[in-house]
Design a protein around this nucleic acid. Structure first.
Lengths: 347, 347
DNA sequence: AGCCGATGCAACATCGATTGTGCAACAGGG
DNA sequence: CCCTGTTGCACAATCGATGTTGCATCGGCT
């Protein structure tokens, strides 16, 4: 089995009594404009198939200055949202016969930068960036290398970006929580509280704004102490939750967790409460986690439409968009199915 | 800003008054054995840094027949275990200055095959395969192209493989479940049941064996009806759970879920039971899911050591292993922290 | 002075594909 | 029969880096 010697167009040329350029033209479907006879092209293509030829992409890439590789940079793989992104990205890339290269950089700006350089050394055709620590810097590098790029789930003031409509999502989530809020809580606890997030960040700011608007529309007002933007650290959120519970003398009637990390902290806190108490509060999480649907109390969740984020990003790329364009995508509200989840209490 | 024209070693050669081959040698640290003076090499390296040169990897790859790319094929990104693998794989690749290319093929044998071909067209230096639908076929392709490859989490009879020690894991998990099994259940329910998995598959078979051994060691016997290998379909598992519950007149004292899917089915079933009843059974899952630790009842879990699986796989690669070698890695038992989780019942 | 072995580097071929150009052979028109 | 187009392809340059070979120059030694 000496089939291991990789075949080249020169081999095919020799076998078919033609020249490499003819073989190349035939295999690329360019035989018509290169005035290769249909019959010759056919012979070449047939032989190539029989010997199972596949082009050397490094050689092609060297000549054409393209590679067929497209990069996606993200913070980490082990995260629901980002792995959903990877999944969608892979599908979209392959639909276009491109090869996806997905690299996680651990939220480390240095790693981000060196990864971008690395990918550029491979002459990737395009770069998608999700959740970079330093978007501007990356954008600048790409721009100076003339590399088309689009940001996903994060706005970059310098480049096309596709992001979730955080405000609309927060509004919808808040309304869902308000809708299912139990009636008859003591006045001290009869309000909805947002916990988590960092008001200085774009995403958080929009979510807070959506929350506020929905609350005002529903209640007529929204007090500052209803918003506890204590960051994304679970431990910090847990602390805040403890003191909130103490201040209010119980759970608030409604709880808006600003991210999955914060939600996890809440779950940890809830582990110490009797189940009945949990059922007396209405909970929402701005993020999606399938396990949320398996809990013994209802949780509304917001799920980003990863599929759509990715496909819109590719569209921007293909349209050759360059400037600072911002496209928003509405997220999906996944209402808790009240019945099933609560049934446990009475079964 | 005309910096967008990518620089080549020819540019550096011109600027430094040297030749391309000299530049290449200098930049690759090979200047000593190429008898380039330290001073010349220094000048070249310095200039390269200043103009921020980076090698064209397609050109290098064409010449050297290597690319610096290493592939990882897996079924899907949106799965805890596989995204953990991706994460570890990325780290290990970058530690070795290789560029990871991770592709999900949706458990589709045709996609797997064409992806392998694709990657080979890029002259990847090595291929890792996790959870392929048709391992033998892939191994054969790689072998005939002389491409070093290793299977992860799946034994291939033709190639080096690194897998989790399913039997040992199952034994440990079973023992943990037995340890925390409540005493005093009615005789009909006082046993441990394994549910899920497909006895025809390697992994399931080993797990069942481990389960059986542990049960026999503990109880003296293990009846066939204690093992319900009904596959991995959640719906199917849910059905089986229902009828088991009916047959036994309640939950068994111990439950061994053979995979995360099955565990999810159990959770769905549990949603209809009062919490007290759940606390009267001891549960284990052969898979890891962080949310399992946030549930209101204790769950023992087995976590595959993705880090170790991946690093052992790289080691096999680097040792140039070729034949059918099977390396096993012990998984980690994550015992439920009884106290915290159960506290909810009494708080 | 003449020979020899380092030393320091330039030239050149090469990897495999793409693409612009050139050139036979043949057909058709005048 | 000559001239002009087509048709059908081969040739050769090129992409950027690597590694082999060869050729000056210089110092030291006899």
């Amino acid at each position: 089995m000496k089939t291991s010697q990789k075949q080249t167009i020169y081999d095919i040329a020799r076998e078919t009594g033609t020249s490499p350029s003819t073989v190349s033209a035939a295999l690329n479907g360019r035989w018509k404009e290169r005035r290769i006879s249909k019959e010759t092209a056919g012979r070449i293509i047939e032989l190539a198939r029989r010997m199972d030829y596949s082009v050397n992409r490094q050689a092609r890439g060297l000549r054409t200055a393209r590679s067929g590789l497209v990069g996606l940079i993200l913070p980490e793989h082990d995260n629901r949202f980002f792995s959903d992104l990877s999944q969608s990205f892979t599908l979209e890339a392959r639909r276009r016969s491109q090869c996806p290269v997905i690299i996680a950089t651990q939220r480390d700006p240095a790693a981000e930068e060196s990864t971008v350089q690395d990918l550029m050394a491979y002459s990737i055709d395009a770069l998608f960036i999700a959740g970079a620590a330093d978007p501007l810097r990356i954008s600048r590098i790409c721009r100076s290398a003339n590399l088309p790029h689009v940001f996903i789930d994060q706005p970059c003031p310098d480049a096309p970006s596709v992001i979730t409509d955080n405000e609309a999502g927060a509004r919808a989530l808040t309304e869902a929580i308000l809708d299912s809020m139990p009636t008859g809580a003591t006045p001290a606890r009869d309000r909805i509280i947002l916990i988590g997030g960092d008001a200085r960040l774009h995403a958080s700011a929009r979510r807070i704004e959506g929350f506020r608007k929905a609350v005002v529309a529903h209640t007529g007002r929204c007090d500052p102490e209803q918003i506890i933007a204590c960051g994304y650290e679970p431990d910090r959120a847990l602390d805040e939750m403890h003191s909130l519970y103490r201040r209010m003398g119980g759970l608030p009637a409604g709880l808006f967790a600003n991210s999955i990390n914060v939600f996890e902290a809440l779950l940890r806190f809830f582990a110490h409460l009797p189940e009945a108490e949990l059922l007396s509060t209405s909970i929402g999480c701005f993020d999606f986690e399938p396990y949320g649907e398996l809990l013994r109390f209802p949780v509304h969740m917001i799920r980003q439409r990863h599929r759509k984020l990715v496909s819109r990003a590719w569209e921007l790329m293909e349209e050759g968009t360059e400037g600072p364009v911002l496209v928003t995508v509405n997220p999906e509200l996944r209402r808790a199915r009240d019945g099933a989840a609560r049934a446990g209490g009475s079964a």
